[in-house]
Design a protein around this nucleic acid. Structure first.
Lengths: 386, 386
DNA sequence: AAACTTTGTTTAACCAATATACAAAGTTCA
DNA sequence: TGAACTTTGTATATTGGTTAAACAAAGTTT
């Protein structure tokens, strides 16, 4: 049964529109909301009253007059509730407590000793419980938990396959919802990162974004029309296994010449390179000391990143590309070769209008994005397409 | 100013829903429409009455009773108007006159002697005028012209770049609208093909479709959520220039190792191959005669197609992939190697749920799709996303 | 202090969907 | 055969949302 139109829907659309207008443009008056949205002043007044009584919006007193009656200033009430954002990584678990505005209230980290599901789940539950315990009192309390995991996730929040954890078909959402009785959203780590940059980082208000998470592998978060695109079964964006050398090195995925064999931290293990270290933070320090092998290798990685990025540009024609993940810390050395290769290899029209930047949120992008996914899930959004 | 909700919008949503329900499920009764859409019977009655008086829907008399009063059968009125679909190719111009149901009423073809804009435009105008002249009388007359061109097109219908025609920045929509005073839609040839398969061919009711047009080059039409995805500037889907060999053959686009150098008709010119012909239809005949070099080459093309298709699967995770374009005529020889390579190279979860088929509409897919784009533009569609 | 501006609310009107009742036209089964 | 049931489609009154217009409140300008 499809979605039909009735008055309830109209109200939902307009209320959602007003809520998100206030969230993005606060502080502002009812009159300004009416101007921005095109809704009648009376409609705005009514719906704002409801939003206020739902504690999602606050009236914080009069503002400056612009030649008439003083406006009553509205704010989105960041403190109406809290969410928990979690990033599950290979060696660590990062978790944050955020308010509805995405402000981090508390942060913690645990090292993981192994990847057995019961153990990892135990750690997650412990850290979540701890954060929930330290959450400030609020009208809605904890409204959701968002998790970013290094693997493929379907629409139901089942981790289909996470090679770095050795997980297959883990119903992570079910397990966490059962424990905490709040809505849980599970997302691929790159998708969470994309959400973070889209809402708080380098990609605010971008319609078509490609977020590339380059770390121990490569994954992409694809935002189309302001909306996360997950594909038919939820595992779009597995770009690390894009072939860039038809007869290249064999990959653990069963294919050959995969992009991430040439442009991720997986290259560090290559013995021929003579690298003085095996982790990005260490190599960054060597690069700062002008260590030759490191500089050369970063240049190579940058160039290979450029090849894959070019492929994605040709397919998606995004407005903006954001490079995130552990490798983004090497921006200083990757940026030039990456942009050079993209400029060399893309079609002329792409060059003019495409921007490539590195993550603004750095290593916290994913965990903030995961949390924010839960916020958006709580607030909802109803829109019309013509 | 954003889209707001009011009663007019509600009506638009429901009317659009009913119209498209009838279009897809006809013949059917009002009661059935009410069931399918979830709308109240009275609402359906009212809106169907309007659609009838607008001639978009016809009541064609009573149907079979299922134990009660006989239903009054409704049809979408294919004959309420006509559209013209045009496919502009390198050597030819194909045009069809279609009714609103996508049925071809008349078809013609012109050979092109050169690609100078004035000459091509002259031919297009002549052929369009001829088809308009032969259109049957109908309530709305000619409601639009849809064109598929081998190049990149922006949202305004400007052909940004069409290397095979030597065109740059041609405002084709403007030129045609000025001449004929009906809405004109211009689309990339692969996008038009995707629309054709989506509505009439191998991909009916698929939500996420990837249509790959393999001919003199390779282009892709990307359907996301049932909607054509054009990217930030309208040139998403330029997948032919995806790198599959980082240091491969240089391409005329300025890059190297582009997919279409290995998996399109561009391979035919490679002197080392010893091919007995240089066009797909001829080679198909040789393949039918078991000509060895031809069979081997088709196998190679199929394998390389598989590599690129794998890349796109990893990025987009579509529900269905349809291979169209001139090379689809060689399905018998391309299918096995293509599917084999995809099976070898994709991640395990992709294999289970992905289908790869070849175009059902064959060479007419593009021109029908182009026409149908004009139909959809005329009918409009208003929907809600939660 | 009078005139004008700006903000936000109140009022009445409008209109689309809906539930409900109902009419029309069929089938089923004793 | 005819009474009971089914199905289809329409008519009616109600509901509940947006809106235009008037208005009230609170400021600025001259």
């Amino acid at each position: 049964m499809k979605i039909t139109g009735d008055q309830a829907l109209v109200k939902k659309i307009n209320k959602s529109l007003i809520l998100h207008t206030i969230r993005k443009h606060a502080p502002l008056s009812r009159a300004r909301v009416s101007e921005i949205t095109g809704l009648n002043k009376a409609t705005v007044s009514n719906l704002v009253a409801e939003l206020c009584s739902e504690e999602l919006v606050n009236e914080v007193g009069p503002g400056e007059s612009s030649g008439g009656r003083k406006p009553l200033i509205l704010h989105f009430n960041d403190r109406a509730g809290c969410v928990i954002g979690i990033e599950l990584r290979v060696r660590q678990l990062t978790a944050v407590l955020c308010d509805l505005g995405g402000h981090v209230l508390k942060e913690c980290e645990v090292d993981l000793e192994n990847h057995h599901l019961p153990y990892v789940l135990e750690q997650m539950k412990r850290i979540i419980a701890e954060l929930i315990g330290s959450a400030p009192d609020s009208h809605y309390g904890i409204v959701g938990i968002g998790v970013g995991v290094p693997g493929m996730v379907d629409e139901q929040g089942v981790v289909l396959f996470a090679p770095n954890l050795g997980w297959e078909m883990v119903d992570l959402r079910g397990l966490l919802e059962q424990e905490f009785s709040v809505p849980v959203t599970i997302d691929n780590e790159a998708n969470a990162g994309a959400q973070g940059e889209l809402n708080f980082g380098a990609a605010q208000d971008v319609r078509h974004l490609l977020y590339i998470s380059a770390g121990s592998g490569i994954g992409s978060g694809i935002i189309i029309g302001g909306e996360l695109y997950k594909g038919a079964r939820g595992y779009a964006g597995e770009t690390g296994h894009m072939t860039i050398e038809a007869e290249g090195k064999p990959c653990s995925c069963g294919s050959r010449g995969c992009w991430e064999l040439y442009a991720s931290e997986r290259t560090y293990d290559n013995p021929g390179l003579n690298l003085p270290a095996r982790t990005t933070p260490e190599l960054v320090r060597y690069a700062l000391d002008q260590q030759e092998d490191t500089l050369r290798h970063f240049r190579t990685i940058g160039e290979y990143l450029g090849i894959g990025v070019t492929n994605l540009i040709n397919s998606f024609n995004p407005e903006l590309i954001v490079i995130g993940g552990a490798l983004s810390e090497a921006e200083a050395w990757l940026g030039e070769p990456l942009r050079r290769v993209v400029a060399e290899r893309t079609l002329p029209y792409h060059k003019q209008q495409l921007e490539i930047t590195f993550s603004k949120l750095g290593s916290r992008g994913t965990v903030i994005g995961a949390g924010f996914t839960a916020v958006m899930h709580f607030l909802g959004r109803t829109r019309v397409t013509l």
